[in-house]
Design a protein around this nucleic acid. Sequence first.
RNA 1: UCCUCGGUAGCUCAAUCGGCAGAGCGGGUGGCUGUUAACCACUAGGUUGGGGGUUCAAGUCCCUCCCGGGGAGCCA
Length: 430
Amino acid sequence: MENCFISDFSRHVDERVTVQGWVANRRSSGRVSFLILRDGTGICQAIVERDTIGDIYPEIKKLPLESSLRVHGHVVKEERSPGGYELHVDGIHIIHKAEEFPIGKKEHGPDFLLSQRHLWLRSPRQISIMRIRDAIIRYVREFFSINGFTLIDTPIFTTTCGEDSTNLFSVDYFDLGKTYLSQTGQLYLEALIPGLGKVYCLGPTFRAERSKTRRHLTEFWMVEGEMAFYEHKDNLDLQEQFVSYVVQKTLAEKEDELKKIERDIEPLRNITPPFYRISYDEALEILKGKGSDIQWGSDLGGDDETLITGLFDKPVFIECYPKKTKAFYMKQHPEKPEYVLCADLLAPEGYGEIIGGSQREDDLNVLLNSIRDNGLDPERYGWYLDLRRFGSVPHSGFGLGIERTVAWICGLKHVRETIPFPRMLYRAYP
RNA sequence: UCCUCGGUAGCUCAAUCGGCAGAGCGGGUGGCUGUUAACCACUAGGUUGGGGGUUCAAGUCCCUCCCGGGGAGCCA
């Protein structure tokens, strides 16, 4: 008798099959026990009757949750059963009798659940989130592939910093002294566009910020695109197509998983181009009109973002920030030198920033000055400056946070549930 | 780093003005032939995060340290 996956039950009705999996839940009523089995493809209810199964029945009836089993039985269509099918069991082999499982059926707090993350990941809700995360990453790759981008794997150990040097994790690197864990692959992507035109990277990113909020992880996954001959507006057009593609594809193919985690999917149907675009100065006017005392030159805070996204039913770009609030590599605005050609994309429903992007500075001397103005050492950026010496062209790019995007699409309060093993300020275990 | 909230049974929480430390779930024992977080009965389970102090008396008040949640700054 062949092993059968629960997801294939519809093709095996009334057949005798073998299923291997774990006991997700268990109920009993005298002479009959109901085991909810999980096999990695789905869940089903297995009916075990005392009179059929024999001597092993008392042990099955008290089997600890998450014990692993190999069961034999007939697949029956049954509307009362979760999943629509159930298994009438005539034979059971206990592969491993579990110890008392720490995660119970009732509510738990975040501290406990995070300390048990390796076991928490077996919960139905976490399983759905992991499936949606997988799908989102697949659609991200698909979008870039369809649109002529080449995947470039950028290094994790770096000697140049993309953002602010105070937020780097440093690592001893043999006799070369300090290297840093990558904050961004962007600078390296820029080196690839003369050869490949449009490139992207997708990988882990490390930020040593002492952030303790629902939007921050110290280790997170970012996808970054970099495009030759794309100017600021081309960059925004691409980003809204990209985000729309990922959201619509997720809705089309993962609606069942979204419903399992009780995501209201109606607001997501609306995520199609064009998105809203307002300038930093316009955002400031809106915020001041709402009673904020935000000053020109300061970045938008979490509350500011929430306030603005609440006014729009689609994602909104905030364009052209003051140069002093942004990274050194952003291109100076041609008419207003105190601004840069950049945009952050804020997701609706209060989720806030999911993309940061900009046109890059392509003038060698302006870039050099910008590096010096930011207190960075031009010596370390020799290779990066070379890119402006050998056929410099206008180019743009952006980075999208995978966890923030998954949190938004799934409707989760906190990014910690969107990654299998979250790394946070006070948590690197398990 | 700063602000704020919290730490009581394995888990989630309660305990009035400082006055006998409790419940649900989970565990154990037994019952029930169709359960849907199954249910019913009984039962075991505590250095109230650590240390110090005030008091006749501290889970409760004070000091201090540790751990965690939420937020700020910063960012995706």
